[in-house]
Amino acid sequence: MQHEVVFAGFGGQGIMLAGQILAYSAMEEGFNVVWLPSYGPEMRGGTANCSVVISDRPVASPIVPRPGTAVVMNNPSMERFGPAVKPGGCLLVNSSLVNLKCDRSDVKTILIPANQMAIDLGSGKAANMIVLGAYVGATGAVSFDVLTSFVRKKFASKPQFVELNVKALTAGRDLAAAAVRGGN
């Protein structure tokens, strides 16, 4: 079993944190995991991405040229990572900000209005948790229970964020799981 995912978007969208929370959860579940950030000369508002490899074997190459899943939070990320997803893989698109279309028929595309869903829950900042929940809902890479209990632990000192984040993860998970079941 090996899951490879790239999270990509603007600096400030919580891309790196989403990948780290996934990596921590995978570790808690006993998997081998590598989290690798892009660390070019980045700046706030520029593009940022990180990749996570989750495996039941030792992770060989930490570099993921053809991820099984790409989570794209803005148009530049769609341009870069839409074509990179492995055939048969999954493309999770933040449709609140991405208006570029991906015309690939060999990957499953799931549209997630992440910013709007997060705003509806009380804070647009939780868009990263919406797509993280969606990733786990679409792929089952880690257990959703492990993910939420890690988030409860991680934000224990900021209880005001715990419920919002768990709600966001759940909303994302439900949307993606329905999309996978519905086959749309």
Partner: peptide
């Protein structure tokens, strides 16, 4: 190499 410094692993 820079990768070892930047990556997170258990």
């Amino acid at each position: 190499d820079g990768m070892i410094g930047q990556m997170m692993e258990p």
